[in-house]
């Protein structure tokens, strides 16, 4: 869901501290993305808590229309990420789920206020770094041409501009624009398996545009899009190098000898 309406955020408070929601995808497949997120945050002077009881944001069932199942998971998430400490998630779509989607499915539920509270303290990574902490540039160095995929869940949020600002500020890195950037990659959660033809056609179109500008890396703020596009490309026998934004930020530090 594009985040059409979002509640204003709670103030961050004086302490730089977040509760990390690693996301189920990083938990299962992309451990390095979660690690990079921690390292990037710590470099920015943020203390990272990791609530061990975390599972998933509830989006798969929400998108699938099974709202009772999704609410069960969201309730668990609300409980796991209790308190006032901001919740940080390295994924535009999980952030959108908690910032907007969950509010839709809890509209008529008695515990809506608790869900609203979670919405108001949740941040997507780039948005947090730029608009929360006020960073305008990212240090370090990263040689290479990067195609930045605008993940759809960042539409209408501050995350897209924030991600681009960070990437463009890195020494040595060039962001290369490509065609039809506003178009979706075709992942769409369960859409990718219930509509395999449409999903893969959309993905191939996106890949064609990306390959045309010959980037070294395909970067996004959402592993779900990257898993889909990376998986399609590999199946084609023409793999692309996929990187999460957090990995680029982390590698930029490592490249100049910062111990992340």
């Amino acid at each position: 869901m594009a985040s059409s309406s979002q509640l204003p955020r709670l103030p961050l408070g004086p302490e730089r501290r977040v509760q990390l929601m690693a996301t189920c995808l990083c938990d299962a497949f992309y451990d390095d993305v979660a690690k990079a997120t921690v390292e990037v945050l710590e470099h920015a002077g943020v203390t990272v808590d990791f609530p061990e009881g975390q599972t998933c944001c509830g989006q798969p069932a929400f998108n699938g229309g099974d709202w009772p199942s999704s609410r069960k998971v969201v309730r668990h998430t609300v409980k796991t990420f209790a308190g006032e400490t901001p919740v940080l998630v390295p994924s535009g779509s999980c952030a959108a789920m908690l910032r907007h989607g969950a509010l839709l499915e809890f509209e008529h539920e008695a515990d809506l206020p608790a869900v609203q509270h979670l919405a108001r303290k949740t941040w997507e990574l780039a948005d947090y770094l730029v608009n929360g902490l006020g960073l305008t540039r990212w240090p370090g160095r990263f040689e290479g041409k990067v195609a930045f995929h605008r993940n759809c869940h960042n539409r209408g949020t501050a995350s897209e501009a924030a991600s681009l600002a960070l990437l463009q500020s890195i020494e040595g890195l060039t962001v290369v624009p490509f065609g039809e950037a506003e178009q979706c990659c075709g992942f769409g959660g369960t859409f990718s398996v219930s509509f395999p033809h449409l999903s893969s056609s959309m993905g191939h179109l996106k890949l064609d545009h990306i390959r045309a500008v010959k980037p070294d890396y395909l970067v996004s703020g959402d592993m779900s899009c990257l898993m889909h596009m990376g998986g399609l490309a590999e199946k084609d026998g023409q793999p692309v190098q996929i990187r999460h934004l957090a990995q680029i930020l982390r590698d930029a530090l490592v490249n100049v000898g910062h111990r992340a």
């Binding site: 061990e52 599972t55 509830g58 069932a61 199942s69 999704s70 668990h76 398996v193 219930s194």
Partner: peptide, 15 residues
């Protein structure tokens, strides 16, 4: 072609 979500929800609400 829509994957059922009940079992997943059970799993995702029990750490």
């Amino acid at each position: 072609a829509s994957p059922p979500m009940g079992a997943w929800a059970l799993l995702a609400s029990q750490p």
